[in-house]
Amino acid sequence: MPDPLFVFFAALTLGAAGLLVLSRNAVTSAMGMILALVGIAAEFFLLDAYFLGVLQVLVYAGAVMVLFLFIIMLLNTDKPETKYPWIKAAGGLAVFLFLSAGVVALILHSGALDKVAGPTPPELSNNPAEFATAAKAFGRLLYTKYMLPLQMAGLLLLLALVGVVNLSKDAKPNA
């Protein structure tokens, strides 16, 4: 039996994801997305990944979703979607769920998960090479082992900035 907190936040996240997928109003979908991301952040906290949880709330549920809401309201696409291929969608989803249930059953049956990890998370240690909760551990790794990816991420953000400016400048109506 999992931790009750885990169950609570898992239910919250899945419910919010359902709201995101099923709501016909784009703003309601965005609210569901925010709730789902906060739920995932809570799961990060339960996994002792405090820094990532905070980052998730700040960047994802904060900045990214504000951007989404801004664009949704800017474009004002509140017309509810009319043509919903419900039957096809439900059929496809049923097939997909059936197949994924098979994959999950196979994985659980093969016992591969037990080889990957024990039944409980290992004890937290102060060894920086192992899983640590402090942001310090992230900083140490980011500036040593992951120096090149960090620089690439910075370059990527700069490129995205330039690209966005270029895209929004060039778009002329009926060009």
Binding site: L47, P121, E130
Partner: peptide
């Protein structure tokens, strides 16, 4: 996976 494998 990261938490259960005790790696960063």
């Amino acid at each position: 996976f990261s938490r259960f494998n005790n790696t960063m």
